[in-house]
Design a protein around this nucleic acid. Structure first.
Lengths: 324, 324
DNA sequence: ATGAAAGCGCTAACAG
DNA sequence: CTGTTAGCGCTTTCAT
């Protein structure tokens, strides 16, 4: 990489003259500017980012800690983050926690050395399970601004971007009841997540008369659901996560349920899974991309004003019913 | 963030003493080391990464340009990259090209200012379509090492990590023939990708008697495949990409094909889609994670020795047949 | 209109 | 064993 020093030497002017010329300073004569610009272009000069960062004491980089990159929901959030960051001339560094506390800590420490201006973070499942958020709140001491997205805790004081899980589940159950569905089953594989808890509460807030199937492992859910539908007539399923939705769908089909005529399945999701399932699953779309975009916006706002009070943005969900 | 300067001031020693003490230099007395370490811990001192980078003229960061983050295949590669990078104490910056030349160029220029030590890149679909790789080979002039993964071109001289697409397709068709399948259909939605071309050639190299359905849009493929199976008996499908596989599967089921008894479907894939399809699709697993890991390894090797000749690593595929 | 010098935070060669 | 100094590449203040 060519540097200001090299350019200045070749042009026989000082480094500062070259620097000023390149930033089109009024202090520099047109003639010199032309000369400098020409040579800079010839060598494809680009200011060394690291040096600029050191000088500016800012990196124009956002660190993202994401629990799981195989989950299409987070992938969409990441895409929203990346786009919004780029739009604001920020770079994005990614660290994947794989739902473990240890990787999450690693990621945080990875970012806590001036590599990033701020952090976007969705706590790992393990973190939520243990309820220990000290490694995250430690960012406050380090004065590294951060924004939580999707998952959060009352224990954590910070900006956050979330969806209205409680309301979404409640509204969906109400919708099912309105449609005349009477035997509603709620299935879930995300027992340990804060969002799972909220959705469950929302569903039960709409109706006490709900059967709950909540498990940690896919096979357990499969077994339980199969047993249930053999024993009892049901006509609606609300899946609190996409995987539960797909599993329920596939099992219902093996026992020849007509879907959605005999059995309505609605699933929280943002996935390819539901899109390419057969038949297409009805979903509660979580607008993942907007979650990502809003997280970036909140963080950039925070970077501009570190003293402002913490803000929460709630991204609305949309119920998408597929009749086919 | 606390700096060496601040520590040195509080301790009443010089900056370099603090620096040396923290790196456990033999030049420093045990007593001083203890004192320094204690204060450093108290303030949670971490060397400023940007300053270290400037000094070291290396960023310990890898830039990744990925065509599409919604494709599970690339997501897995990214995960492999991230893990292998972390294992070697490198950070990962991500830029998503969305299969467009313009975003790809943006990404490259984004990285070409000293932000990264090297680049990992899978060219966008548009780039492959246009056959113009100048913006990529320009990295050679800029002396930024890069490694291509998954997609590549003869026009590009570089390290690369690829799968043996030609052989995999060929072997799969042979497998089908061995199993007594006679009417084989090859379906594809990745006409414009170099890998699509290779897979197609491989399939035809195993048998000339193949029906080819190749389209750009999902609907076109759906229509054509439906028409075909109504007109003619077929007993095997090789899908060159996962989407084609799923679409074929869903259509075959609407017309009540028994799968895999009557119709074998095998698909190139690395997806959740095939895993949670019903019935489970048989797949040609591309070991995406290994592609990611190998890309990082090749790049790090290159960083150590910029003069070595270019290497190509071929990641083997595995045929995974599901009987259910 | 141009240049010299300082300083961002760090490391390391050199001096004492 | 500790300190001084230089320099990574850049921007900016302050001379000239």
């Amino acid at each position: 990489m060519v540097t200001l020093k090299q350019l200045s030497k070749e042009l026989g002017v000082s480094i500062s003259t070259v620097s000023k010329a390149l930033s089109d300073s009024f202090e520099i004569s047109e003639r010199t500017k032309k000369k400098v610009l020409a040579l800079a272009r010839k060598y494809n000069y680009r200011p060394n980012n690291v040096a600029v960062n050191l000088r500016a004491k800012s990196t124009k980089t956002i660190g993202v800690i994401i629990p799981n990159i195989f989950n299409h929901f987070y992938t969409k959030i990441l895409s929203g983050i990346e786009q919004e960051a780029k739009r604001n001339n920020y770079k994005v560094i990614v660290s994947i926690s794989n739902e473990t506390v240890s990787s999450e800590k690693e990621g945080i420490s990875f970012f806590s050395n001036g590599s990033v201006d701020g952090i976007l973070l969705a706590p790992s499942e393990e973190t939520e399970k243990l309820g220990n958020y000290k490694h995250i709140s430690a960012l406050h001491q380090k004065e590294i601004p951060f924004v939580l997205f999707d998952r959060y805790s009352e224990k954590l004081n910070s900006d956050k971007v979330i969806i209205n899980d409680f309301d979404s589940a409640k509204k969906t159950v109400k919708y099912l009841i309105n449609k005349g569905r009477e035997e509603i089953v709620v299935v879930s594989l995300i027992k340990h997540l804060s969002v799972g808890e909220l959705r469950k509460k929302g569903a039960f807030d709409a109706s006490k008369k709900i059967t709950l199937l909540e498990f940690e492992k896919e096979e357990e859910l499969e077994e339980a659901f199969l047993k249930l539908i053999k024993r009892k007539r049901i006509d609606a399923v609300l899946a609190l996560d996409e995987l539960s939705g797909i599993i329920t769908l596939n099992i219902a089909r093996t026992v020849a349920f007509r879907i959605p005529e005999e059995l309505t399945i609605i699933s929280f999701s943002q996935g390819v899974l539901s899109e390419y399932s057969y038949p297409k699953l009805s979903t509660i779309n979580q607008h993942a991309k907007e979650i990502g975009e809003n997280s970036v916006q909140l963080l950039l706002t925070r970077l501009k004003n570190k003293e402002a009070s913490y803000k929460t943005r709630i991204i609305k969900t949309a119920l998408e019913i597929h009749q086919t």
